[in-house]
Simulated scan of single mutants.
Amino acid sequence: MRAEDLLPDEQNQGQFNGLTVRKGTVGAFLLNARSWLDPASSADQRKDAERDIVEALPALHALGLFDLLQVRDAKLRELVSRPAA
């Protein structure tokens, strides 16, 4: 399956396990995780990245991302394993 088979160019979101997930959610998570883990990031950048990661967790779990992939960094793994608020 190719990306466009899952979400065609003209479609920006899809339903996965009963949750609407926007196109780009996984890519945004990866960028935010890199920023959150980067020692060169400012405290504000890390705070913003963490907020965005936490907000995306329901969608990432609906996609099953962490059922297939394990996060290497222990602190990030703990963050993404927190129960939903």
Rank of each mutant, 00 (worst) to 15 (best):
G27K: 08
R22I: 04
G24N: 06
Q13C: 07
R51A: 14
L6T: 05
L30V: 15
R46P: 12
F16P: 09
W36P: 01
A49M: 07
G27L: 09
R22Y: 10
T20I: 11
I53Y: 03
S41W: 07
A59T: 01
R72F: 04
D44I: 10
A56E: 00
D67Q: 10
D44Y: 14
W36Y: 15
S81Y: 06
F66L: 00
D52H: 06
T25I: 02
P58Y: 02
F29H: 00
D38E: 05
L6H: 08
A3V: 12
E78P: 04
L19G: 03
T20D: 13
R77E: 12
R77W: 14
D48V: 14
A74Y: 03
V26T: 05
V21S: 00
A74M: 09
L30G: 15
H61Q: 02
G64Q: 10
K75C: 10
P83F: 04
R51G: 13
R2P: 10
N17Q: 07
L57E: 00
P83H: 13
A74C: 06
A40V: 14
R82D: 03
L31V: 10
D48Q: 09
V26R: 00
I53T: 04
E50H: 15
G24H: 03
Q11I: 11
K47W: 07
G27Y: 06
Q70T: 01
T20N: 12
Q70M: 03
D9F: 14
A28K: 06
P83E: 07
A3T: 07
A43I: 13
R77F: 11
F16Y: 14
K23Y: 02
L37N: 01
L31F: 13
L6V: 13
L7K: 00
V54L: 04
K47G: 07
L60F: 09
N32F: 15
V26M: 02
L57S: 00
T20Q: 14
L68K: 08
P8S: 08
P58N: 09
P39D: 05
S81I: 07
R77L: 11
P8H: 03
Q11G: 11
D52T: 09
E55W: 04
V26D: 00
D73Y: 03
V80I: 05
Q45K: 15
S35P: 11
E10V: 10
A43Q: 11
D52Q: 06
A84L: 05
V71F: 11
A62L: 05
G27F: 08
D9A: 14
R82F: 03
L68R: 05
V54M: 04
E4G: 12
Q15R: 13
G64R: 12
A28Q: 03
A85D: 13
D5Q: 13
A59E: 01
N17Y: 03
D48I: 13
N32V: 07
Q13F: 09
L6S: 14
V21E: 04
V71I: 06
V21F: 01
R22T: 13
N32C: 14
